[in-house]
Amino acid sequence: MEKLIRPIYQERASQRNTLGILMIEKKFNHSASTDTFDVILLVIAKDTDYPFFIKHYSYEYQKAALYIVNEQKLNEWLLLGTNRKVIDWVLNGKVLFDRNEYIEGLRRQLLEFPEQERQLKMGIEFAKLIRRYTDGKVFLETDQLLDAYNHVVHALHHLARLTVIEQGFHPEVTVWNQVKQIDAQIYKLYKELVESEEPLDKRLELLFLASEFLIHSRVPSGSAHLLKILKQKEGAWSIGEIASHPELQVYSVDLVIMLEYLVDKHFLAIQEVPTKGQNIFHRYYMVVDHP
């Protein structure tokens, strides 16, 4: 395989646009992090025609994948967690080329995990958690048990990722191994959901009750980023102003359900502003100051 990859990365390393090259090898009996490929080459470039593209190679009985990603797309993956394998690749991959210690600086930033980045990541996970929990509860109430089960599994997964981030770590692909060491209560809930011999409806009822408490306890950390943005302006915000704010657009379709959850838990208050229509009001949001 070395005969295959050496000319590939040497060609890329000679290009001035290349910031760094990492090699990730498949671990014994564990190919999830490399999508079953024997070797991944991750090339990070300053600018590219496309945010990222992939090439596949084969040599005898082995296969390799070349990922070329520009700096902007890589930072998006790392910040938003939309490509979870990349954090593992950057932290644990073998450095083949590192222009001006770019990869070393990237690793240092990931390990330090600045508070601003943690708050944003916790906010995104919290919004997804609220979405899954709320939708799952509706499915349970309407006896759509398999859909409720699917949503509560995802809700617990987002709760697990949120818990890992709270402790200052990046969630890994095998997040439950991390949670087992960090929060035994959440790990136990997950085990009870998937392994209990109780009827499914009983399992779900218990899980939603237990999850409600755990979710509520995460409101301060999960909403810190959103509330900090909303406090930047005196007075109330329209939903249009909130949704179009550059730092809040990453919440995407989960933003509204998160806002309504925070209203329900009295972290946000509603201000009604009259419209031209009789007895019709605009709905504005403002942060509630807690003592």
Rank of each mutant, 00 (worst) to 15 (best):
L162Q: 03
K55M: 10
L189M: 15
Y190K: 15
H151P: 03
Y57T: 07
I229N: 06
I5M: 08
N83F: 11
A160W: 01
V86P: 04
L129T: 01
L146H: 05
L207H: 03
K191F: 08
A236W: 02
S58P: 04
V175E: 10
P246G: 08
L80E: 12
R131C: 08
Q62K: 14
S252V: 00
P171H: 10
E192T: 09
M122V: 00
F126N: 07
H170N: 11
Y284Q: 14
I124L: 12
S221E: 12
L200I: 12
A155D: 03
Y187W: 11
R16A: 13
L209Q: 12
A45V: 15
Q116I: 10
E60Q: 15
T82Q: 04
A210L: 12
F97V: 14
V179C: 04
F213L: 14
V263S: 03
F28I: 15
N279K: 14
L145A: 10
T142A: 09
A184M: 05
A155T: 07
V39T: 15
I8T: 11
I130S: 00
D35H: 11
E212V: 02
R16L: 10
M23I: 13
G168I: 08
L189R: 08
K3E: 11
E197L: 12
D49K: 12
I5E: 04
I40T: 07
K233C: 06
M286N: 05
G105T: 08
I124G: 08
L255M: 10
D98F: 00
N83A: 13
Q144C: 13
H245A: 08
E272P: 01
L226S: 00
T134Q: 11
R16M: 10
T36S: 13
Y149Q: 14
P220K: 08
H158C: 10
G136K: 02
V250I: 11
P171E: 10
I21M: 04
G81V: 02
S252T: 07
K265Y: 01
T36M: 05
L22C: 10
P220N: 01
L255V: 04
V90L: 07
E195Q: 15
Q62H: 10
H56V: 15
A236M: 05
Q119N: 10
P171F: 02
I5C: 06
I24C: 09
G168R: 09
I124K: 08
V287E: 04
Q178M: 11
G277E: 11
S33E: 14
K27C: 01
H56A: 15
S14M: 06
L110Y: 06
G81L: 00
E76R: 13
F267W: 13
I242F: 03
Q116S: 13
L214M: 12
V39S: 02
D38P: 06
I103F: 01
E260C: 06
V90C: 05
T34W: 03
I242S: 04
G81W: 07
K228G: 09
F169G: 01
S252P: 06
N279R: 12
Y102K: 08
L111S: 09
W89Q: 03
K128W: 05
H216P: 06
G105M: 05
K265R: 15
P7M: 08
Q62M: 09
S31Y: 09
D135N: 13
S221I: 00
M258T: 13
L206Y: 09
D35F: 05
L207S: 09
P51V: 08
E198G: 00
Y190T: 12
V138H: 02
F52V: 05
G222V: 05
F113Q: 04
L162W: 01
G20P: 00
E260A: 02
P199M: 09
